[in-house]
Design a protein around this nucleic acid. Structure first.
Lengths: 224, 224
DNA sequence: TCAAAAGTGTTCAGGGTACACCCATGG
DNA sequence: CCATGGGTGTACCCTGAACACTTTTGA
């Protein structure tokens, strides 16, 4: 390859992943306790450097995959953080990504070997670098999308009850929602399908299980 | 400074600016004809490389300032483009920014010396690199913000008529708006203030000039 | 006097919100 | 039989959309 650019600075480029999941009913983020300098011993997001033979988005998927074992995960760029002093080790430009995953599908032993822990948003420790800013920006982005895009289902198992879906919306949006209004709105979306399955774990009566069907998703009418 | 990271790749990081303005009534973008390889002779966004002693956001402001002479300009990150092959010259990671400026305030001679031209969105040529994607993403972002944030005023002169404000909204949103409804909504926002000034250039009767007053801006109620 | 843009209220419908009771079942 | 969560319909209000005529003044 011919190189046209000379005399210009080059920087390490990293990706940092804000990974959201519902753990024990709480909206949580995967955090790791750093095993290396800089910021050794502090909690931080899972990240990694972009390699010469991979795109930046690709690097984010690799980091997520190494940590969780998951592939084909929806990831969204949150933003790029490029202040001079954001990394005390060296000047690094970092691209933050946000992922929404179903906690049940993660490989627990893998998480343990990376010192990764699901941490409820309500009990977040201080994070190293500018990772708190990344988390809050990612959260804000998720909140915005929740009403107009079917992102909630990425956090839930394939089959879920209306109550669990509603609780998820209440958690993320931080308010309480009227049950009847919520169910009415939900069922207006053809992509939310009732199945014949019944969940008996949460009540004596049993609750119908629903499923998200992407085939019936209509981006113009979806609303929740 | 101690360096903790070794054996990792380093890349040139660039910024590219999608600069919107209203030129002769058209929503336009500042494009330049590239004077250097790669992609010499093609139209592209104005960009530059991030220097070792400046933050990424700072670099974007510098590029904008060099081109337009403007300072203190609202710039918003659009996203980071990091595909392997996005730049034929060398692998470059680029952060796209979006700026909204008032065309009247730009230094025309400066623009000329940079081969920069205001180009209506309706007559965009093909752009080099992945700049078309950057423009469309930036435009989408502006459209989203237009209703809920007072960004329109960044494109207009300090004093403006209701009609010009409405035309701007119609242009950006791509629809036509009822005059009475628009004016009613506009005046519900205390940050839009009527002045005693009258513009006689656009009609025999003369139109009242309004002003955006940031002091009275309320982020929770603003709507247009 | 006429052309051209400025300015001004009301009506109606649809969507969103508030609200309370019966059902099914396991223990 | 009772405690627990599941499931259902209606009334009202308010916001957003549709709609037409008068005013001013320079040429």
């Amino acid at each position: 390859m011919t190189t046209f650019y000379s005399d210009i600075a080059r920087f390490p480029v990293s990706v940092d992943c804000v990974i959201f999941g519902i753990n024990e009913g709480d909206l949580s983020v995967l955090l790791t306790k750093r095993a290396f300098e800089p910021e050794k011993g502090r909690w931080s997001l899972m990240g990694g450097f972009v390699a010469p033979d991979e795109g930046v988005d690709q690097a984010a998927k690799r980091v997520l995959h190494d940590l969780t074992g998951l592939t084909d995960i929806y990831m969204q760029q949150v933003g790029t953080f490029g202040s001079l002093d954001r990394d005390p080790g060296e000047r690094v430009v970092s691209v933050a990504y946000c992922a929404l995953i179903n906690v049940d599908q993660t490989d627990d032993s893998n998480l343990r070997s990376h010192n990764a822990v699901w941490t409820p948003l309500s009990a977040m420790p201080r994070l190293g670098f500018d990772h708190e800013e990344m988390v809050s920006r990612a959260l804000q982005m998720v909140k915005m999308k929740f009403s107009f895009e079917p992102v909630a289902f990425k956090l839930l198992p394939q089959f879920f009850t209306m109550t669990s879906l509603q609780q998820l919306y209440e958690t993320v949006q931080g308010n309480s929602i009227d049950k009847r209004n919520f169910r009415k709105r939900a069922l207006e979306n053809p992509c939310i399908e009732k199945t014949d399955l019944i969940d008996k774990t949460s009540s004596r009566r049993g609750a119908a299980l629903f499923r998200y069907n992407a085939t019936n998703f209509n981006p113009d009418t979806f609303r929740l």
